[in-house]
């Protein structure tokens, strides 16, 4: 019983990490109408930013978190400005290919600068806590709490603030949003900034679990989070959170059962197939509206 509970908590915390990344995918898809396949590599850049601070300069992990978030936010805005904005209005396939190109560019740059060998990024020395006889890793609780706060905060920003309304407006009808005076380019840049900051946090939380990074650090979490976004219904923010949580919990359960653990990734990805068969637009995805 206690094992099940600790697996659930680990699953929720891993799910929170996927949710943070999935939010970036889903927001960018909803607002800029593109799949940013370089999103996972933003996580990797964040982890190397943390490596520079704690690994090379032996500075505080708190500073590392701050620097990772700042670097990723700036990188997100830069990538949008240089790679995607010139393609606004181009066919979506061109944008998709560009995103894949940006992904390889970031991985190659990391490899040139830091080498292909994985490096250690020692963050905090976490202990276990004992809650009612169940021992739980503290990092799981911290990750879970921070993810929950961030998701609630994001929903609040989108529902209740001027910037949030502008985001919804741009995602629904770019032309009409412009007619309201919304600067579409700026709104898209803000979306990339938020998504990249969340990716940086996700990278840090992944380092809590395993303090090693490499140029392909972001690839697998990136793909899994993309799957989470699709499961939840791409474009939907609560959907990304739900998809992330489902993926994280299923993955941790699969890992905790000895004869299933080698197939954990396969099990995770097969959820996508099942969900898409039952609900092709994802759990909270919108049905295509018929035009009247």
């Amino acid at each position: 019983m206690s094992e099940i509970i600790s697996t659930i908590i680990n699953g929720l915390s891993q799910g929170g990490v996927y949710a943070l990344i999935a939010l970036g995918y889903t927001m960018v898809y909803g607002i800029a109408k593109m799949l940013n396949f370089a999103h996972g590599d933003i996580i990797m850049v964040g982890s190397y930013a943390a490596f520079v601070v704690v690994g090379m300069m032996s500075s505080s992990p708190f500073l590392a978190i701050f620097i990772a978030v700042v670097v990723c936010t700036a990188l997100g805005i830069l990538v949008e400005r240089l790679a995607y904005r010139p393609l606004r209005g181009a066919p979506s396939l061109s944008v998709l290919i560009t995103a894949i190109g940006v992904s390889y560019l970031l991985q190659s740059l990391a490899q040139i600068i830091f080498g292909a060998t994985p490096v250690m990024v020692p963050m905090f020395d976490f202990k276990f806590v004992d809650i009612g006889g169940i021992s739980i890793k503290i990092q799981s609780l911290i990750t879970l709490a921070v993810c929950a706060v961030v998701i609630v905060l994001l929903l609040f920003v989108i529902k209740k603030t001027k910037v949030g309304r502008a985001m919804v407006a741009v995602s629904e009808d770019r032309g009409a949003a412009q007619l309201m005076g919304v600067n579409v380019n700026r709104t898209i840049a803000i979306t990339f900034a938020i998504g990249s900051a969340l990716a940086a946090l996700a990278g840090i939380f992944s380092l809590f679990v395993s303090p090693v990074t490499s140029p392909t650090f972001g690839a697998l979490p990136g793909i899994k989070a993309f799957v989470a976004a699709v499961i939840g219904g791409i474009g939907s923010i609560p959907g990304a959170a739900i998809g992330g949580i489902i993926l994280g919990v299923v993955e941790q359960f699969a890992l905790s059962v000895p004869f299933l653990s080698p197939y954990a990734d396969a099990i995770v990805f097969s959820i996508l197939i099942v969900v898409l068969l039952v609900r092709p637009t994802g759990i909270l995805g919108k049905k295509q509206r018929e035009k009247v």
Partner: peptide
């Protein structure tokens, strides 16, 4: 072209965006 996923009030707020 009203924003269908937003409330009437939110649409009006967007009208006053500037």
């Amino acid at each position: 072209r009203v924003f269908k996923d937003l409330s009437v009030y939110d649409n009006l707020c967007l009208g006053a965006y500037t």
